[in-house]
Amino acid sequence: MTETPQIDPAPAPLAAATPDTAGDPVISARQVVRRYRRPRRSLTRPGPVVEALRGVDLDVAYGQRLGIVGESGSGKSTLIRLLAGLDRPTSGSIRFAGREITRLPDRSLRFLRRDLQMVFQDPMSSLDPRMTVGDIIREPLVALGHPDSRARVAELLDAVGLPAAAAHRYPHQFSGGQRQRISIARALSPRPRVLVADEPVSALDVSVRAQILNLLMDLVDEFSLTLVFVSHDLSVVRHVCDTVVVMRDGEIVERGTTAAVYERPTHPYTEALLAAAPTLRKALAAHAAARNRKEPQER
């Protein structure tokens, strides 16, 4: 659902967060563990414990475009929920711009709500159907006490390629791709420094996917954003990210630059993932080979 910043009764500080310290990562996670208890199955025994994350270390540098790939159950969604302060780890430390966020109460996380924003997979369920697009984009601004939200909404709609008139309409009046543009505009409204995108193009048609990926890349460049991009689609991550981590069973099994991981994977699981992903190139090569075998017989 909508990631609404906590509304704090105190006047909003408009000062920027701590200035970028060259070299220091914007996000730094150490030995992060998250256990869930499943619902109990028997009257006498407690429910089984699931270890969703088993001691993850992760640094994200300013301006980095980090891809997180893994299959369902790998812990990638749990990890980004923790990074975004939507959930607390069982143990371990997560620092955002140098500040420990794991033990802060929600009301002290205003800086995180402003500096880190999320775009979710399904734009229909992450936009409130009863709010106008303008109100949706304005909501984070109002919550953070922004002075001139109206002008900012028009500016944001323009940045994501929607007409200014879209502000008065409702989410259901837009196509899937346009709704994802609205989600992106909302995420960018408080001028975040980090954008976390959770499978942002998985629900989109192929012809629209390319448009949204291009838009994300444009915005990341224009606003010097740090991008954390979660996807099960290896080719999308390869296109968007400069660094990639591969997760499996709550652990990071491989990490490195995108070029290195895709061209010379070292972990067998990464190799298996890359081999399993269907690509047009691989498939067409197989067709060409089959055709070459057939040709002589036909003549």
Partner: peptide, 27 residues
């Protein structure tokens, strides 16, 4: 042609952007 171009994420223009089909699929 457009569909194949838009789904091939290894081909980009000079700015590193993908080729797209303009507009959206109508209802």
């Amino acid at each position: 042609e457009g569909l194949i171009a838009a789904s091939d994420l290894s081909v980009v223009d000079g700015r590193g952007r993908l080729r797209t089909i303009p507009g959206a699929v109508p209802n």
